[in-house]
């Protein structure tokens, strides 16, 4: 995977380059908006990491211009600007994810990998949590390589959990992701669905488990 790193802080850029190389990325590193523009126009990258505050301009302007020219690769914004307004602006102007400094290398790598397996990518990707794998192209699930048949809704719910493994999903959030406004929704529909999915995963010997945090939500986590 070829990655363009746009970061002007020399030390942070060096550390990022080393960390990302160790994670298997091929890195091109630039320090300015103009260098980044030149690089994007001559090379083909799979993904970019973009700092917003650059010596010769704002990273967001660069992103907006490049998106207007048809730049399609995922871009992760890496910045110190943490207000909600900044975050929303970043995502609206073409950022695919927004990581706040300081960050852990492991989290950055995980987010980059998550961006690379977005369903809108041409090739399907495997999302893996523990011994459970979900193929986003042919919509199949395996547990320890053995196929696990799931209904359309169960598979949707599992995908939601696997894309956000380690994060808590509130019931609102699940309802909004799985059901449209027109769907007649029983008040306990989500619970029933969760119960069925949980039983099927346990039955198949899956290593991650769906935990319930009463009153808060649910999360899929590797049993420790």
């Amino acid at each position: 995977m070829r990655l363009l790193l746009v970061e002007d802080e020399r030390e942070l850029a060096c550390l990022l380059e080393a960390g990302l190389k160790a994670a298997g990325f091929a890195i091109d590193r630039v320090r300015t908006v103009s260098d980044a523009e030149a690089a994007l126009e001559t090379e083909r990258y799979d993904i970019a990491v973009l700092d917003l505050r650059l010596p010769d301009g704002d990273g967001l302007d660069l992103l907006k211009r490049q998106r207007a020219k048809g730049l399609a690769i995922p871009v992760l914004i890496l910045t110190a600007r943490d207000s909600l307004a900044d975050r929303i602006r970043g995502l609206e102007q073409g950022g695919d994810d927004y990581v706040l400094k300081p960050f852990h290398m492991a989290e950055l790598v995980a987010r980059l990998r998550a961006l690379l397996r977005r369903p809108n990518q041409a090739l399907g990707a495997n999302i893996v949590v523990g011994n459970v794998a979900l193929n986003t192209a042919d919509r199949s699930v395996t547990v320890s390589k053995a196929p696990l048949p799931l209904s359309r809704r169960e598979l949707g719910l599992l995908e939601l959990f696997m894309r956000r493994s380690g994060r808590v999903l509130t019931r609102d959030c699940i309802e909004r992701a799985l059901y449209s406004f027109d769907d007649e929704l029983e008040s306990n529909a989500v619970e029933v669905l969760l119960h069925r999915l949980r039983r099927k995963l346990m039955g198949a010997g899956a290593s991650p488990e769906i935990h319930t945090l009463r009153g808060i939500g649910y999360l899929l986590e590797e049993a420790s």
Partner: peptide
Amino acid sequence: TTDAAHELRTPVAVLTARIDM
């Protein structure tokens, strides 16, 4: 406040990245 955010967070980010290595 935005300048301070940048000036304070960047060294912490360097530190965090270095410790991660």
